[in-house]
Each structure stands twice: as C-alpha cells, then as structure tokens.
C-alpha cells in the first residue's frame, strides 16, 4: 500500500515537473517552433506520467483504461494542433527564427 502511494506520488511529481518545464519553455523560448517543441514534448510526457500516477493510485483496471484513452486523445490533439500551428507559421513567413537579432521586447539580453 505504502509502496504504491510512493510510486504514484513520484510519478505525479515528475509529471508536474514536465508540465512546469514545458510552460517555462513556452514563456522563455524565442520563436514559434521551439515553443511548440517545448510545449508538446513536455506536455505529452507530463500527461503520461500524471495518468500513470493516477492509474497506480486508483489500482482499478477500468480507471486505468479510461486514463489510457485520456492520454491517447491528449496526444492526438496536441500532435495535430502543433502540426497546424507550425504549418501556419511557415506559411505566414515566420520560418526563420530571429536568432541574429535580440528582440526589442525581450527585457533580458
């Protein structure tokens, strides 16, 4: 009982870590593509860890199956929306990330 609780807590905490890392990436990265990369990669793994943690905590096959469906749907939605946003960014001419010149709006150099 204690073991499953420790395992579930570890999974949930590491899931939260990936969500926080993804959010920091969304806020701090310079262009659309690296932001998308941070957000979708980190969130997919974070969602997986949180779903696994909840499944371990519940100990019920039914809830585990439902959480698996939640994760797969989250993956699909994130993949397709990421693809569409990146596609739109390329089409509208944001393909070159502004590496050479620091943006004026960015307070940190």
């Amino acid at each position: 009982m204690i073991l499953t609780e420790v395992m579930a807590s570890l999974l949930l905490i590491s899931g939260c870590f990936f969500y926080i890392a993804g959010t920091v990436g969304l806020l701090r990265f310079p262009d659309v593509f690296s932001r998308l990369h941070a957000l979708t990669k980190a969130d997919n793994l974070g969602l997986f860890l949180i779903c696994t943690g909840l499944a371990v905590n519940s100990g019920s096959p039914r809830i585990t199956g439902l959480l698996l469906v939640v994760w797969i749907l989250g993956l699909l939605a994130a993949t397709v929306s990421c693809h569409l946003i990146a596609r739109r960014a390329i089409r509208s001419g944001q393909a070159e990330p502004p590496v050479a010149e620091p943006r004026a709006a960015d307070p940190t150099p």
């Binding site: 749907l73 699909l76 939605a77 993949t79 397709v80 693809h83 569409l84 596609r87 739109r88 089409r91």
Partner: peptide, 19 residues
C-alpha cells in the same frame, strides 16, 4: 480553412467526431 486538406486533420476528425 487553409488546413482542410492536411491528412492529419482528416485522421483526427475520423476519430474525434465519433468519440
């Protein structure tokens, strides 16, 4: 919509709308 013909969108729709 500019993305009507993207294959991924069709695949997502065929799954998400029935769900």
């Amino acid at each position: 919509p500019a993305h009507a013909e993207v294959p991924l969108v069709g695949a997502l729709l065929s799954l998400v709308v029935p769900i």
